[in-house]
């Protein structure tokens, strides 16, 4: 796996950590501060890239809203109204200034504040991703453990074939396949749509089943394969496993108490690296199941040239990626005493 990519940020910021070593004695606090400082240039880069890419898309919201029959004067008026007549640099700085003061701006199309648009959609996406994430871990961890118990055994073989196949299925293909089987043929589950939890929990969950499965299945295949091979590696190569066995520990105890704890670092890294892919996949899944989540907001925004909304969403996604990776680092600290006591 190419997952063990070394964070180069560490080297660049050694002087910073050196300065902090004296100031802060808590490694957890140190890591949080270090990571947040490192996030600043990344977020700035993301904002510039986003703005630049979107600004190069031909057409703007004003032209699109007024249609091809609009006079140049009409367009100019609306552009002025929406602030689109300003030079790009000015628009970027305005937007960035707004972000820093917590003002995400207004949609060029609906003129609603983007904050409220996001607040409306966020619960939908969060529920979908959260369910898929929990489901994928809840399945992949036990399956990987059982498979690693007897590598090459019948359970291992079956699980690995399914996982290898599942990892190769495009998410949207799986989604359509699930719709075809459960909604079209069997008719037991709704194909599209979303019921808010506040209206009806049962209907909400029923509508969530297929999107969650479509999102979770490739993920769980990926996690299962990774965890299984890491566990087998630990069992075969690590001496502490021999020590545990020499104590008289049984295979399950060796797996759960010893190998799994050490393998969990790899799994956590994988989860962290996977966030940005997961966000992309969520966008597609929401589109297929017509769920009013952030993904749909994003696609609408791109199609209607509602760039403020798109920019805000990209920044939000990047921020989520950064925060998840911060959490990954903190989990490392909690799980790995070598970091917690600052010897590594």
């Amino acid at each position: 796996m190419t997952l063990a990519s070394t964070p180069p940020r560490a080297a660049a910021l050694t002087w910073l950590s050196g300065a902090w070593a004296g100031v802060s004695s808590s490694p957890i606090l140190r890591i949080i501060i270090k990571r947040l400082l490192m996030a600043i240039p990344i977020m700035l880069g993301v904002s510039i890239l986003t703005f630049w890419v979107l600004a190069s898309i031909p057409g703007n919201a004003a032209q699109l809203q007024l249609g091809i029959n609009a006079t140049p004067e009409q367009i100019a008026t609306l552009e002025k109204q929406l602030g689109l007549d300003q030079p790009a640099i000015q628009r970027y700085l305005d937007w960035l200034g707004g972000l820093l003061t917590g003002d995400l701006g207004r949609s060029s199309v609906s003129s609603q504040p983007v904050t409220s648009l996001i607040a409306d959609r966020l619960p939908v996406s969060a529920e979908l991703v959260g369910l898929a994430f929990v489901l994928s871990l809840a399945v992949s961890i036990p399956v990987a453990l059982v498979s690693a118990r007897r590598p090459g055994g019948i359970i291992d073989r079956i699980a690995m074939v399914i996982a290898a196949t599942g990892q190769s299925i495009a998410n949207y293909v799986l989604a359509l396949l699930l719709v075809l089987i459960f909604a079209v043929k069997a008719g037991v589950l709704p194909a599209i749509g979303f019921t808010p939890i506040s209206e009806d929990l049962g209907e909400n969950l029923k509508g969530m089943v297929l999107p969650t499965l479509a999102l979770a299945f490739p993920l769980m295949c990926f996690y299962t394969r990774f965890l299984r091979s890491d566990l087998v590696d630990q069992l075969q190569r690590e001496d502490y496993v021999d020590t545990a066995r020499a104590k008289g520990a049984g295979p399950w105890r060796v797996l759960l108490r010893h190998a799994f704890r050490n393998s969990s670092f790899g799994l956590i890294t994988l989860v962290g690296l996977n966030v940005s892919v997961l966000i992309g996949v969520t966008v597609i899944t929401e589109q297929i199941f017509a769920m009013p989540g952030l993904g749909q907001l994003l696609l609408q925004g791109i199609n209607t040239r509602d760039f403020v909304v798109v920019q805000d969403l990209v920044i939000l996604f990047a921020a989520i990626t950064v925060v998840v990776n911060l959490i990954v680092d903190l989990l490392y600290v909690i799980l790995d005493p070598r970091i917690r006591y600052g010897s590594r």
């Binding site: 021999d242 104590k247 008289g248 010893h258 799980l335």
Partner: peptide
């Protein structure tokens, strides 16, 4: 065999850095 390990025969290994579980006290 498991009952025997530890009670009848025990073993220590070459590299004490690797033969202790790094995540356990």
């Amino acid at each position: 065999l498991r009952q025997l390990r530890g009670t009848q025969v025990a073993m220590i290994f070459q590299d004490p850095t690797r033969s202790l579980n790094p995540t356990m006290r």
